[in-house]
Nucleic acid binder design. Structure first.
Length: 423
RNA sequence: GUGGCCGUAGCUCAUCAGGUAGAGCACCGGAUUGUGACUCCGGAGGUGGCGGGUUCGAGACCCGUCGGCCACCCCA
């Protein structure tokens, strides 16, 4: 079979699927534009150090999922596993933080994981970030913006919003200690993975999928009780804003996120229609990150959505109607002289009908086989040039859909004729 | 990294007590001299993922390996 193949988890996206992508990307782009967000384009490769310092040294992403390699000058580079780190680096480096910034970006991310439904090693995200705004009104804006996107895409019914506050770093540290104390005493009752996490990342035990572990957590200390006053107030305000906007949500006190830089507001849009990969969009506040990466202290908040997962959702819910890929016209010619005529006339037609999808037969073939290709192209009309047409200065226009038949049209009348016929 | 299921024509799949492989779709050609779709006829296309083993003989059984899917872990 094929010796040469794509790397595991790095998939080709074929012409059959790209209409979904184009439709999704177009909707996202227009929506972000309308909310006043500006697009920023970022490198796919950054110094490894950037990700270690932002995502966190002991996270799974940094420990075992990054594509890291040495550059020719022996500097350690990494294919970005997520977008926020690079975006923060860019706004610091480019001096964009003197005023609040609303930014977005789109592109591939890379994580060395075992592929499964809704997860691949090269995947695509759209990230949205807001810098320099500490108040929860911006939190609400981002959430309402994403909610509007689901409406535009027709998938509102398939997703729900989960919300939580994980407080300040200090509050979280205090809570972590309490949680560890509680769970340490019950270590034997935890599932194997959670026992391991007790040492590495105890907060993540909260969203364990193990039922027994979840039951054990019912009597555990609650993160909400450890929140600092500001986090409590901001979270209450965010909820009030969402209520006022009519945005429903579920407060999930066990929602924590995997990246170290989050604080205060965290949220996820989840679905039950994508198998095990329920999260379609997720984010939160990262007020300390800019300073941590060497910029002046600047609050930040953002989220990322997984494009593969959204495309899956779009196709599985049948919500999106991809653009038709059918041609409008297919141009057929028989004989060398007719081909000259066909090529020249078709180019002239493209000048006049630039919005039409015109496919010129290439590769020769019998008249019959050209007509078969014309039919397969989905074109509504075939333009036919043969000896007779060339000598008479006409073109045979044949309808390929429904009734219609064939008409002989003088070449000078073609543009007008086609304009009317293709309405 | 771990587990389950799976790997036969481009695609979807079948066959069989183990006796060197078929269908549908797609593709190519023909059925009027320059006319598609529908129908009919014909054709091309597979070292049965790869490598070992058992056997007189393996796509079918066994082992290994590679790959795919799904799940765990983690995450978008």
């Amino acid at each position: 079979m094929t010796k040469l193949r794509a790397i595991r988890g790095m998939n080709d996206i074929l012409p059959e699927e790209t209409p979904y992508w184009q439709s999704l990307e177009g909707t996202v782009r227009d929506l972000l534009h309308s909310y006043g967000y500006g697009e920023i384009r970022l490198p796919i490769v950054e110094y490894t150090e950037l990700f270690k310092r932002s995502i966190g040294e002991v996270t799974d992403i940094v420990e075992k999922e990054m594509y890291t390699f040495a550059d020719r000058n022996d500097e350690s580079l990494t294919l970005r596993p997520e977008g926020t780190a690079g975006c923060v680096r860019a706004v610091i480096q480019q001096g964009l933080l003197s005023t609040p910034q609303r930014l977005w970006y789109s592109g591939p991310m890379f994580r060395y994981e075992r592929p499964q439904k809704g997860r691949q090693r090269q995947f695509h995200q759209v990230g949205v970030e807001a810098f320099g705004i500490a108040s929860p009104d911006i939190d609400a804006e981002l959430i309402l913006l994403s909610a509007r996107l689901w409406r535009l895409l027709g998938i509102s019914d398939a997703v729900t919003l989960e919300l939580n506050s994980i407080g300040s770093p200090a509050a979280r540290a205090a809570y972590r200690a309490a949680l560890v104390e509680y769970l340490e005493a019950r270590r034997e009752q935890l599932d194997e993975d959670s026992q391991r996490r007790l040492d590495s990342n105890p907060l993540r035990i909260l969203d364990s999928k193990n039922a027994d572990t979840q039951a054990l957590l019912d009597d555990a200390p609650s993160l909400a009780n450890y929140l600092d006053e500001e986090s409590q107030a901001d979270f209450a305000r965010l909820c009030a804003l969402l209520d006022a906007a009519g945005q429903s949500y579920r407060v999930n006190p066990r929602l924590v996120r995997g990246l170290d830089y989050y604080n205060k507001t965290v949220f996820e849009w989840v679905t039950d229609r994508l198998g095990a990969q329920g999260t379609v969009c997720a984010g939160g506040r990262y007020d300390g990150l800019v300073e941590q990466l060497g910029g002046k202290a600047t609050p930040g908040i953002g989220f990322a959505m997984g494009l593969e997962r959204l495309v899956l959702l779009l196709s599985e819910t049948g919500a999106a109607v991809p653009l038709a890929q059918d041609a409008d016209l297919y141009v057929v010619s028989v004989g060398a002289a007719a081909e000259l005529e066909a090529v020249a006339r078709t180019e002239a037609l493209r000048d006049i009908l630039p919005e039409r999808r015109i496919v010129l037969n290439a590769g020769g073939g019998s008249f019959k086989s050209q007509m078969k290709k014309a039919d397969k192209s989905g074109a509504r009309l075939a333009l036919i040039w043969g000896e007779d047409e060339v000598s008479q200065g006409t073109c045979a226009v044949k309808s390929l859909r429904g009734e219609g038949g064939q008409q002989s049209v003088a070449v000078q009348d073609l543009p007008e004729y086609l304009r009317a016929a293709l309405v």
